[in-house]
Design a protein around this nucleic acid. Structure first.
Lengths: 251, 251
DNA sequence: TTGCTCCTCACGTCACGTGAGGTGGC
DNA sequence: TTGCTCCTCACGTCACGTGAGGTGGC
């Protein structure tokens, strides 16, 4: 390839594309070369050098709009580079988190839109539970979320299924029976995770007025029979705890 | 914030923007909610959940156009995720290289568009040398480039300056004197870097017909006097080596 | 009437890529 | 005439952001 070079030749030498070169011409970043008699561009060595410098800066993350001034205003360059470095560091962190999350999803064979951190238990969770966790993750801090994960892991699959499949019009007997089955583990949870008795006190600081959200999510995601079972079990669990405190665990 | 939520309220709860929500509506990704009497959107819990799932997938790098099908076609998801992971890994590598290069530029106070790897010596290099290195980096493999860096590091600053500032019309005496000054180091380079005697043999494999480029770059970037000095020094250096081989270094 | 909240619609951003239609010499 | 190379010009992509102009109830 003797000088002068055509656009495809220049692109090939700089390991880029003709579209990229034309784009830089449009932006005024790369000087237009002379034209041959038939209108073809004829690039010289200086164009190749300029193109390589532009590609280098673009590769470092310098916005094309700033590349002209990087040449001109060398004094402001360190600040620009430090800013770029900061952006790159952030981007790398985000991508590394995404990779870790993808690995967890693949490892646990979980749905891709599982709540972050819940991949291990995602396939055992009902739609309602999964939805609720998505919302809670916006409202509760990480320690609470970690506790929720523990609770979900220790949940009995049969009980979870029974709750999940409870029809909205389940009769009195069915509800009461189910409530009694889940009362012990609920009581245990109240012991293991004291904040469960007053979850509203543990909302994220930056989450403004969200107590309503917290409650409305539950009410929306479970049917009346399920909510009734939760309520009955919760009352029974509290009674159980009060009983054991009075009898076996004096303050 | 009681249900139903307005668009800004929904955006705030999902830690995103109203524009993002409207964008998802336009793409048909997020169901349009009911409107109030005055035309305001009224979002329910299910919209919040859907929005959070979309944001989660988007955060993992799933293209918006594929998010609908990720829900529908769970079987193809692992392949998609593995592809995403591969892209993320590539992106992270690129960004880490960029960060390392930015660090080198800042550390050595080098121009941002220095040839990669040459930051330490960039401030001592002439424009022509820097340009040439940019071009050579496209044509020569990494080992040769490492040798070029070594050569540049060991170059005498005064000699480099003398060459760089040599006028195109420098007279005979000046040229000859300068050639004689650089002959010893050039001879030493021929010994230390044997490939210098036949650099064209070390072009990158994937770089097709580029010998011309190699030569045209030199001819274009240096003035006639400089080229003449290089030529004279090269001839003298070769003579020197032949002499020393005949006298002091029998094969 | 003024402010406030939400709305729609069109266009902008970033760094190019795509594709249609035309040209000039073999 | 066909093929090949290069050209221009308009529009597309991706995931939104911006800004103009309008509305409805206090």
């Amino acid at each position: 390839m003797p000088v002068p070079w055509s656009t495809p030749e220049l692109a090939s030498m700089a390991r880029t594309t003709v579209n990229t070169i034309r784009h830089y011409h449009r932006l005024g970043l790369l000087e237009e070369p002379e034209r041959s008699f038939n209108g073809y561009r004829e690039y010289q060595v200086r164009h190749l050098v300029r193109l390589l410098r532009i590609r280098r800066l673009a590769g470092l993350g310098v916005p094309l709009a700033h590349i002209a001034e990087v040449g001109a205003d060398a004094a402001s360059t360190p600040d620009l580079l430090r800013e770029l470095d900061h952006d790159l560091a952030e981007s790398i962190k985000r991508e590394q988190r995404a990779r870790a999350d993808i690995a967890a999803i693949l490892r646990d064979n979980a749905p891709a839109d599982s709540p972050p951190g819940f991949e291990r238990v995602a396939s055992r969770m009902s739609e309602a539970d999964s939805s609720l966790i998505h919302i809670y993750a916006q409202l509760l801090d990480d320690e609470i979320m970690a506790d929720l994960l523990e609770m979900t892991e220790s949940n009995s699959s049969e009980l979870a299924l029974a709750i999940d499949t409870l029809p909205a019009d389940a009769d009195e007997t069915t509800r009461q029976a189910l409530a009694e089955r889940i009362t012990p583990s609920m009581a245990q949870n109240f012991i293991d995770y004291p904040w469960l008795r007053d979850p509203l006190a543990h909302l994220k600081q930056n989450a403004n007025i969200t107590e309503q959200t917290f409650i409305e999510a539950v009410v929306n995601l479970y049917n009346p029979a399920q909510l009734d079972v939760f309520y009955r079990a919760s009352v029974a669990a509290h009674a159980l705890l009060r009983g054991s405190e009075e009898v076996g665990e004096p303050a």
